[in-house]
Design a protein around this nucleic acid. Structure first.
Length: 350
DNA sequence: TATCCACCGGAATTTATGGAAG
DNA sequence: CTTCCATAAATTCCGGTGGATA
């Protein structure tokens, strides 16, 4: 059924970027000074998860690259400190600074390295520090393009006036696609990725179901193809609901896999309980901790750290939080997503 | 209505770890 | 080998929050 997995991969760059013509124009306009060897304008890209923010920058830069002498760095800044952002930028530009280079030296190195127009995409930039942006602003010929979910949240933290002026009024918003548009985007993936064709109505149904979020639409299409192959039926015979569910399970499983033992322990306690209040969750953790951590490197963590882990689990859509304050409850978003440590927890619980 | 309580989450601090330079 | 500087993770501290309680 599926002939080319690549087409459904997250990093896949389609030849044509459909229904983003206006956004491409804006971004290309900001980059235009590079044609004369000048410093490009900064742009603050924002929009919800999975609507093609990263793809837009890669596509636009790909076009620019053929006409201008320009460099670019794509940096995933999530969880990076100020020095981490500078270091990652240098690495993206092909440098390899030592792990313990002082922050000041990193900034100097970057200033020396950049000798032509350079665009630095700061992906997942929601908690970028004002300081990191200020350091990048010090570099001649360098423009930054932070990609965030909520621009106000970033701007409210920027206390440096120079940085503020470089971002205010330079916002570029990407919204969810209309169902018709997303169906258009799915169609070429069918042609290049699948062996059979798929009814247009079905694509639109998928688009509708995922609320115009491209990433989810693409994964749902892929899931539908997989289910169709298992059942040996036409793709259109697969329920969009079931396909969407499988796609979300994939995403969650991948997310859980990337997390630490602490996350897994907390997740399994929550999943096992169905819905659980904070105090009981902590009690359960204390109960099972010695048994679960007994033959492992790590040791149990305190309450404050558990809150951080739980927050991470929530942002990864593994755990859902209902209510506020101490009256909140935690529950697993998808009970079928389980951790390999599940057995340990249940055993220790008795 | 005012105060209390248990938890949340930001910020600062501590602890563990590791590469580079002297 | 020691010192310096860095990162990462966990802990400590504490103000904020909003339903519960007197």
């Amino acid at each position: 059924m599926i002939v080319d997995e690549q087409v459904f991969a997250d990093g896949y760059l389609p030849k044509r970027l459909l229904h983003r013509e206006a956004e491409v124009e804006v971004l290309a306009g900001a980059f235009e000074p590079t044609l004369d060897g000048d410093q490009p304008d900064d742009v603050l890209i924002h929009g919800p998860h999975g609507v093609g923010k990263t793809v837009l920058t890669r596509h636009t830069f790909g076009r620019l690259e053929q006409r201008a002498d320009v460099e670019w760095a794509h940096v995933r800044t999530m969880g990076l400190s100020t020095a981490g952002v500078i270091r990652a930028t240098l690495q993206a530009l092909g440098e390899d600074p030592a792990q313990n280079t002082p922050q000041e030296d990193l900034c100097l190195e970057l200033r020396e390295r950049v000798d032509k127009p350079t665009i630095v995409v700061l992906d997942e930039g929601d908690d970028l520090s004002s300081d990191a942006l200020a350091r990048l602003a010090d570099v001649q010929l360098l423009a930054f393009v932070p990609i965030v979910h909520e621009p106000e949240r970033l701007l409210s933290r920027v206390d440096d006036d120079r940085v503020r002026h470089r971002l205010v009024g330079r916002e570029l918003e990407l919204d969810r696609y209309a169902s018709r548009e997303l169906a258009d985007i799915l169609e070429p993936r069918v042609r290049h990725g699948l062996r059979t064709s798929v009814d247009d109505e079905f694509l639109e149904e998928i688009a509708d179901h995922v609320g115009g979020v491209a990433r989810k639409g693409i994964q749902t299409l892929r899931a539908a193809a997989e289910i169709a192959a298992e059942r040996q039926c036409r793709i259109e015979a697969v329920g969009v609901d079931a396909a969407h569910e499988r796609a979300m399970t994939w995403i969650r499983e991948a997310n859980l896999q990337s997390l630490t033992l602490h996350h897994h322990v907390l997740y399994e306690i929550v999943r096992d309980a169905g819905a659980i209040e904070p105090d009981e969750l902590h009690d359960r953790y204390d109960d099972v901790a010695t048994a679960v951590y007994a033959d492992r490197e790590q040791t149990p963590i305190g309450r404050r750290s558990r809150r951080n882990k739980l927050r991470k689990l929530a942002t990864y859509e593994l755990v859902v939080v209902d209510g506020a304050n101490r009256h909140r409850t935690y529950r697993a978003a998808d009970n079928t997503v389980e951790s390999p440590i599940q057995y340990d927890v249940l055993q220790a619980t008795g």
